[in-house]
Amino acid sequence: MGFHTYDPSRADNLEDPTRYQYLSVDELLALFDPQGTVADLGSGTGFYTDHVAPYAETVHAVDVQDEMHEYYREKGAPDNVEFVVAEIADLPFADDQLDGAFSTMTYHEFASDEALGELARVLRPDALLGIADWTRNGEGGEGPPTDERYALQDAMDALTDAGFTVEHASERRETFVLRARR
């Protein structure tokens, strides 16, 4: 799959509350333990970051596009959110620095052996990774085209190959969610 990013000129669309039909805040929080220092992988405008921030000491909002961070700054970010411009395959964190990480509808944008290996490097042993993304088995009415998506089993296999243990996985109509432990 080719690397691509979300068009920053459409950033307002990422603030649409109808996104909760695909992933509720409670479901996101149940996927990983947002305590200590965590990272939002592909944070965009901070739509879900805002909901995680009250539970964590620090949330690193990681995005490859500084334009998304600019939007988030203008919107107003919680005080414990730190902005990081980086690709997931090249994170500026020390080994075992993060207590957890999550990705909401961005796994398909960064999934690679290099990126998953980098996540395994920066997450401390026993840390949780929560992922919600569009499934290849969906109808494709929302989100990216189905040929740009991953099937749940493919994501599970890739994470297992990177040294994670998948503890929970569920595929739904258009999305999948999974929780993996380093």
Rank of each mutant, 00 (worst) to 15 (best):
M1E: 09
G2Q: 13
G2K: 15
F3M: 02
H4I: 04
D7P: 06
D7A: 03
P8A: 13
S9H: 04
D12Y: 15
N13G: 08
L14R: 14
Y20N: 07
Q21P: 00
Y22S: 07
V25W: 00
L28T: 01
L28V: 01
L31E: 00
D33H: 00
G36V: 10
T37Y: 13
L41S: 11
S43Y: 02
G46M: 13
T49Q: 12
D50L: 15
E57Q: 15
V59C: 15
V62Y: 14
D63R: 13
D63Q: 14
V64T: 14
Q65S: 13
Q65H: 11
H69E: 10
H69W: 12
Y71Q: 04
E74P: 08
G76H: 10
A77E: 14
D79H: 05
D79Y: 02
N80Y: 11
F83R: 12
I88D: 08
I88M: 14
A89R: 09
F93Y: 15
F93Q: 13
F93M: 13
F93K: 06
A94E: 14
D95W: 13
D95L: 15
D96P: 05
Q97F: 15
Q97V: 04
L98H: 12
F102A: 08
Y107M: 12
H108N: 05
F110E: 02
D113I: 05
A115I: 05
L116S: 09
L116K: 04
A120H: 15
V122F: 08
P125G: 11
A127N: 03
L129V: 03
L129M: 05
I131P: 12
A132S: 11
D133K: 13
W134A: 07
N137H: 13
E139K: 03
E142I: 07
P145R: 11
D147M: 08
D147W: 10
Y150E: 06
D154S: 08
A155M: 11
M156F: 05
L159A: 01
T160F: 02
F164L: 11
T165H: 01
E167K: 00
A169Y: 01
S170H: 04
E171Q: 03
E171M: 02
R173K: 08
F176L: 07
L178I: 03
R179D: 01
R179G: 00
R182S: 13
